[in-house]
Amino acid sequence: MPAATPLKRDQSAAGSSPADAILVVDRVTKRFDTPDGALTAVDNVSLTVAPGEFLAVIGPSGCGKSTLFNVIGGLLDNYEGQISVAGETVSGPHRSIGMVFQEESTFPWRTVLDNVAFPLEIAGMAKSERYTKARHFVELVGLDGFERRYPAELSGGMRQRVSMARTLASEPKILLMDEPFAALDEQTRLLLGDKVLQIQQELQQTTLLITHNITEAVQLSDRILVMTYRPGKVKRIVDIDLPRPRSSEIVSSEAFGRYVAQIWNDLREEASRGMRDDESRTRHAGEKQA
């Protein structure tokens, strides 16, 4: 098993060299104005993702993972640093980056097929062509036979697969996912992980996954970037040297267990810090009220 790469305090770049990277996040810092002053959510984070790579960003709650997701996806502005896709600096939402959100995000008024065809409709594709293409992606996520159903008729896991198919239908260069299975039970999460792996391999889809779930991160990724608790910085990058193609069966392997233990070791300190911080803030708020 290869050793994890500990980073020095000022070293926060992660991954392949920017020249062959498809996504480069360069020294990104994002601050929010709060009543208690400016809060740094993401602090000088740099990372690169190579074409076809699966990178997971993991960290405890409050480490700025979702902020990073929104910055890369172009939903947040006024940040320091730079983001480029295939050598082109981007700001704001970009067609090269497809986002899958943590919350349920299917359109309840559209059928599965119409949900998946949505980005193609926006791109102005003819109806028959977009339905043919949408059917392909519905099939890819294993929902063939449910094309005419509405999201309300599907389970949570199926709805997330619809969201993923919709994003994949726009054929993004980078698939950006923010804890897409966070609301699902563990078994469904593992099985959907298999589906994600299969799709990622089939499409050679460059993927950046934001998660707080260690098992999920190790199961899916080529590399894992561990973030510190507030402000979110890059703590360590771990190369996951597990054979591909993988499936959820890998969770029972010894190597898998070692990676999980190693990442938990890194995360425990950060998660404990987050917990202490939460407790102190709650106590402080209580004292203020009293």
Binding site: P93, H94, I97, M99, F101, S105, I122, T167, S170
Partner: peptide, 24 residues
Amino acid sequence: VLINVGKSFKLTPWQLYWKILFPA
């Protein structure tokens, strides 16, 4: 999140209204 989906697909303000806000 539905508005964010629209933004991520680079919808124009008119499309955002017509395709997402209004049906919602």
